[in-house]
């Protein structure tokens, strides 16, 4: 299978996501100006500071030409994974409910956190054990939603790094094919760099893609 990793100006974790995805399949970078997903089987909107996070995190990236394709791909049922800034962008784009607010302590935080897999039946978590150790790193990661959502990951008790509502760390859309999370699974794919729990998310996607009818837009 092939992953596509979006690269906006200011994206920082694009190569990291590509390297992580390449452990389970092929992966190529997709440029923000190109209205072309190049036939990939799943899209990753990676972390970083797209367009400098100016105005509001993710607010400018959602208007990038490539995002028109991502939105169409998602509506057609394609698997889309948004990590950190990618989660913020997917919320801004209306593909996921809710919003990410500035952390309750108002500072950037890097921390290795424990996560509980609340829903192991999504295309993104079916290979996951009940708990995961994955790092977070963000200033704007406090998830908030005024309406009920499908929670996939929660911070384990005492591990919430940002004050998010109900300890929410990751959610899927109603259709279950768009997943956003603040922790960085691409930074937990090798024991040498701390943990390989994040790899389970990429493996889940590979498994899910193998069972699905290819989505083309």
């Amino acid at each position: 299978m092939k992953f596509g990793v979006i690269r906006f100006p200011g994206t920082c974790d694009d190569v990291d996501a590509q390297l992580a995805a390449q452990r389970v399949g092929d992966a190529e970078l997709l440029w923000h100006r190109d209205r072309d997903l190049k036939g990939v089987d799943a899209v990753i909107v990676p972390g970083g500071f797209s367009y400098g996070d100016y105005l509001r995190a993710g607010a400018i990236a959602r208007f990038a030409p490539v995002m028109e394709e991502v939105i169409e791909f998602a509506h057609a049922g394609g698997l889309v994974l948004g990590i950190c800034n990618g989660f913020q962008i997917l919320c801004e784009a209306g593909l996921l409910p809710g919003a990410l607010l500035i952390n309750d302590h108002l500072k950037f935080v890097f921390r290795q956190v424990n996560l509980e897999v609340v829903d192991p039946n999504t295309p993104f978590t079916r290979e996951c054990p009940p708990t995961l150790s994955i790092p977070v790193k963000h200033t704007t990661g406090r998830y908030y939603t005024p309406t009920p959502v499908q929670v996939v990951l929660r911070y384990a008790p005492g591990n919430n790094p940002n004050g998010s509502q109900d300890d929410i760390a990751g959610v899927v859309n109603n259709a279950g094919n768009v997943f956003g999370l603040m922790p960085h699974p691409e930074h937990a794919v090798d024991l040498l760099t701390g943990s390989e729990d994040g790899l389970r998310i990429f493996e889940s996607i590979r498994t899910a893609v193998g069972e699905r009818v290819k989505v083309t837009v």
């Binding site: 974790d13 190569v15 990291d16 935080v109 890097f110 921390r111 790092p135 930074h187 760099t193 701390g194």
Partner: peptide, 11 residues
């Protein structure tokens, strides 16, 4: 150091 990202670039 919790205010700094030590892991980006995966090295």
């Amino acid at each position: 150091f919790e205010q700094y990202d030590p892991v980006v670039q995966s090295r």
